[in-house]
């Protein structure tokens, strides 16, 4: 098809149709631009099928992963992540992205900027601290962090103890 033929076809296309297409395109762009995202602020968290910790995990998200917000209900956020949809607890997330270097007019760094920054009180500070406090038992803390409970173990534990979670009375 020649360029002229293409232009002729375009001219023949009804303008209302083109306008509608443009409107849909621009509206969609606006919605996408406004889509709310949140970020994971803990080492790892589960995206769950329902908004409770006992619900099955549909995906695992890790520190700094970005999640698209679909809905909010009480302390839970419905999100889309890597093609999956599910719920994460609000305490595992924050609303803003990272800019380690951004500063305000006074030169201070805002809470937004440090939420994900890899500086501050971190492993390098811990290493320096441990040199000055040889009595501090970080190896013991490392072993303590290895103490984890699998979801299956926790489910079995609840069932064996007839523990049925209740809603909040407050």
């Amino acid at each position: 098809m020649s360029v002229m033929n293409g232009l002729t076809r375009l001219r023949k296309t009804p303008r209302p149709f083109l306008a509608a297409c443009l409107a849909i395109f621009l509206s969609a762009t606006a919605v996408i631009a406004a889509a709310e995202t949140i970020f994971v602020t803990v080492k790892k968290t589960s995206v769950r099928k329902d908004r409770q910790f006992y619900a099955p995990t549909v995906a695992e998200a890790v520190f700094r992963d970005q999640l698209v917000v679909l809905a909010r209900e009480k302390d839970w956020v419905r999100v889309r992540f890597k093609g999956f949809e599910g719920w994460v607890h609000v305490s595992a997330t924050a609303a803003k992205a990272v800019s380690v270097t951004a500063k305000d007019a006074t030169g201070g760094v805002s809470q937004d900027d440090v939420a994900f920054a890899s500086k501050g009180f971190d492993s390098s500070v811990e290493r320096e601290y441990s040199k000055s406090k040889p009595q501090a038992n970080f190896a013991g803390v490392d072993r303590m962090e290895q103490l984890t409970v699998s979801e299956k173990t926790l489910t079995d534990f609840r069932q064996a103890g007839n523990l049925r979670p209740r809603g909040d009375k407050k």
Partner: peptide, 16 residues
């Protein structure tokens, strides 16, 4: 405050 701290806190531009 603890309930919403993660979201509310970082949505602000307040200095630490």
């Amino acid at each position: 405050a603890a309930h919403g701290k993660a979201v509310a806190k970082t949505a602000s531009k307040a200095m630490r």
